[in-house]
């Protein structure tokens, strides 16, 4: 049996809102030690999502035996809208389930809402992601990166990320012209999340599809910082930390062989 209780429904709502525009169907893999993990690829096979909700994401978590829950995220999203952000949210599934029970509990009123979501058999490929040695790692406010991704999409289909030891530059070239934003490393002692950290082994210059970056920055609601790991001619890793665990996006670059 699975029973996972979130202190606030908003955490799962934000997670699902961050991925459901990229992936419609996905398997939630549940286990006692790892909590709930998801690996899913978008329809165009360009973006891979890796989610890890450790047991620490939950106020209470038990999973007596490993199980896979095949979910339609659009349907799950409809049910999650029924609860309030502050509610307790509990996911319950029996062994070999054909449905997932979702329970909202209002913390102030004696109100309990229960929903049952039909599960699906989802056949999905699992990709092996090796721990990569990265050329660069950037940690910056997620709101800043989100603004760049959204603004530059209006100018160009692609966004270039150029990292040197002194700076990270985001650049877009489109029909109307071009633009760039440069950030330099910066430590904000009063607001550490506002700091910008650049670790560089080798400079990189990579190009990514603006459409996918716009999907990725939907997860900015989950964390005030984003870590971007870049390696020449390899997918970029965009990571948002959860209270315990992470939401990662691996995005294939654009380049000519």
């Amino acid at each position: 049996m699975l029973e996972g209780k979130f202190d606030q429904a908003s955490l799962l709502k934000k997670i699902i809102d961050s991925i459901r525009d990229s992936v419609k169907l996905c398997n939630f893999n549940c286990s006692q030690n790892d909590g709930i993990t998801v690996q899913a690829i978008d329809d165009s096979r360009v973006l891979l999502i890796a989610l890890k909700m450790d047991p620490g994401c939950f106020q209470e978590f038990r999973c007596d035996r490993d199980m896979v829950l095949g979910l339609d995220l659009e349907s799950l999203g409809k049910i999650l809208k029924q609860g309030n952000n502050e509610d307790y949210l509990t996911l319950i599934a029996e062994d070999n389930p054909d449905s997932l029970l979702i329970v909202f509990e209002d913390k102030k009123k004696d109100r309990i809402s229960e929903f049952s979501l039909k599960l699906m058999d989802i056949d999905s490929d699992v990709l092996t992601i090796d721990d990569m040695d990265n050329d660069c790692s950037i940690t910056m406010p997620s709101a800043d990166f989100s603004k760049i991704a959204r603004d530059f999409k209006t100018m160009s289909e692609s966004l270039q990320i150029i990292v040197t030891k002194e700076s990270v530059k985001f650049k877009a070239e489109g029909q109307i012209g071009s633009g760039s934003v440069i950030f330099k490393p910066h430590t904000d002692l009063d607001n550490p999340d506002e700091s910008i950290k650049i670790d560089m082994n080798q400079p990189v210059n990579l190009t990514f599809g603006a459409k996918y970056l716009n999907d990725i920055v939907k997860a900015s609601t989950l964390s005030s910082t984003i870590t971007i790991k870049l390696t020449d001619k390899a997918p970029a890793l965009f990571e948002f930390k959860l209270p315990s665990g992470y939401l990662r996006y691996y995005l294939a670059p654009k380049f000519e062989d």
Partner: peptide
Amino acid sequence: NKPQLTIEEFFPVE
């Protein structure tokens, strides 16, 4: 315009 690669060109299917 540079061509968009897919993620499977980098990460093998298990």
